[in-house]
Design a binder for these strands. Structure first.
Lengths: 340, 340
DNA sequence: GTGAAAGCGCTAACAC
DNA sequence: GTGTTAGCGCTTTCAC
């Protein structure tokens, strides 16, 4: 017994017609008579015929598959983006194929090549923190549409979906000012990722706009952005002769670390020190006090990236005019910053 | 200018040899002379030849692709499992294709069919909460290897990778007893998912083993297992004439809810009420007090599932003897339960 | 309205 | 050691 899969040939043989007629009938071709169509479709159902997508892909030179490269699946933000991509792609009849680079450039290059060899129709990417060289993506964009999200670079002239980090940081900082904070510190992300730089810029500009001084002692690096870093950075801030009375953190995990340090120092949040994070991780509404944070619209981002990619897939002209879509962030005010 | 992709034919033409020789040279076939191999490989590199995986797949009747069906990507546990699957599959030269069902049976059936049509070589599944009928997976297992993880059913005679929920619950309960808890309550998951039932069974058996009574008033349902449910269930427990002095929760989110209710009631954790969760979500080490919890080895589970699937892929015999692999959980003792 | 034939890109039996 | 041929399953041009 052979591989059990029914093919068009089998249907044709059973019905005593040609494979081409079967193919046309299955694809509802106008030339085929209604009777033939019915015969074919009935038999197909009866025998559980399922088209071989691989053969279709080879024939049509497209796969109806979208590749996605992200740094880490376990990051809440990225997993929400994936959900958004998947939702839109699925509705449009596309399959999605993911690779995670674990923030490794080398892995990213390999994944890119592998996806390309799989003959994906288009690629959606958030590149790794390590990535400085974008040749592999330049190669991609010569062949198929490419859309970047969250992390961007000027070296790639393709569509980009990003979040307004500057504005989010500005809102967060302004909110702290409105809560009567006078010495606002910042736990900053890495400058070489746009997101880190933009958040810092939003923070600094907002201080200036309010006639407050930007104090370099109040800006500490949290490049990895994890809890430990946040914890130690906050301890250093508390050791200053005049510690801050508010902190804007480049992400929620760093904010958690800061929170821990503040509590251990016997200070109260938000009374002594108000705290704002960035990203709206799941846990930020669960901790005590609940963390004020800037929500990034992950699902929307995924949706937007997939929509744009699919649009470029359908209309090649669009690829000549890449867009840069900026999604608004949302300041979610919770206890950690409310001094009312 | 045509599709810019270099094919074997192009290489053959340029070198004045036949396509089959090129193919053999690229695949390092022993028959081919070293000189020819070198010529071919050099030209391939020069012209950036990349094999068309789709054509290879059609030819070989396999895709070197593993399908994965999971309920939700944004759940931390599932995202860790994916990481594990991806890691092993990648090393073994397999590509992974994910679908998320969002806990919908209908979507699961569609995804299964779509993956099958993509001609995946094997499938790894954690089925949706809605799924009661397993025909779609029975169809799968007739054709290709299928491995279940986390959620299992007797209706499928295939390999299963599960976590020892019973043992995890027993450890957690015993730990609470060792911490001198006398009235231990349980926020229980749904009975129709094995995981919920097993955790409850582990809890009850451990109480009995220690000559403690199982008090039905102390067992409250938390079927969705979210924060709100945990919160309200805990409030009901606190309203009892004799409230418990410890609670074992079916998952960390419910435990978070319980924690909130306890704090609001002005009670102390762990002094007045000790708390243990299940799953070791990211946040459980971040909250105050840090949550004791039973860690499920998500990454290991993914690795084990992928390893088993690949083994069955390579050796058809193995499919006749499905295994049931039980992974040990790990009790992570933190502040929320330590009364020392 | 339907069939025959060719070809998507690759590989493996079979020749020599 | 290399070429010829055929075929994986599907679709589409070209015939009739």
């Amino acid at each position: 017994m052979k591989s059990s899969q029914v093919t068009i040939k089998d249907l044709a043989k059973t019905l005593g017609i040609s494979p081409s007629t079967v193919s046309r009938a299955l694809n509802d071709h106008p030339d085929i008579s209604p009777e033939t169509k019915k015969e074919v479709n009935d038999l197909a159902k009866k025998l559980n015929y399922e088209p071989n997508v691989v053969a279709q892909n080879l024939r049509s030179q497209k796969t109806n598959t979208i590749g996605v490269i992200i740094p880490e699946i376990v990051h809440f933000f990225f997993s929400t983006v994936i959900s958004g991509i998947e939702e839109v792609a699925y509705k449009a009849g596309y399959t999605v194929m993911f690779c995670q680079t674990s923030e490794s450039y080398e892995r990213e290059v390999k994944d890119t090549k592998a996806l390309l060899n799989q003959r994906i129709d288009g690629l959606i990417v958030s590149f790794s923190k390590e990535t400085q060289n974008f040749e592999h993506f330049q190669e991609v964009s010569k062949k198929i549409p490419l859309v970047l999200f969250d992390r961007e670079t000027d070296e790639l002239n393709v569509s980009k979906i990003v979040v307004d980090d500057y504005d989010g940081a500005a809102m967060a900082t302004q909110h702290l000012i409105n809560q009567k904070s006078e010495r606002i510190a910042h736990l900053a992300g890495p400058d070489n990722l746009t997101i880190g730089a933009e958040r810092k810029r939003g923070y600094e500009d907002t201080l200036r706009k309010n006639n407050m001084k930007v104090n370099p002692d109040y800006i500490l690096p949290c490049f990895k952005g994890n809890l430990e870093e946040g914890f130690h950075a906050m301890q250093r801030l508390l050791d200053l002769p005049t510690p801050p009375d508010a902190v804007f953190c480049t992400n929620d995990t760093a904010a958690m670390g800061a929170m821990k340090a503040i509590k251990e120092a016997g200070l109260e949040i938000p009374k002594d020190i108000a705290l704002v994070g960035f990203s709206n991780w799941q846990f930020s509404s669960l901790i005590e006090p609940q963390l004020t944070t800037v929500a990034q619209p992950g699902v929307d981002m995924g949706r937007a990236a997939a929509k744009r990619l699919i649009a470029e897939l359908k209309d090649k002209e669009l690829r000549e005019q890449p867009i840069r879509q900026v999604l608004k962030t949302d300041l979610i005010i919770r206890k950690s910053s409310k001094r009312s």
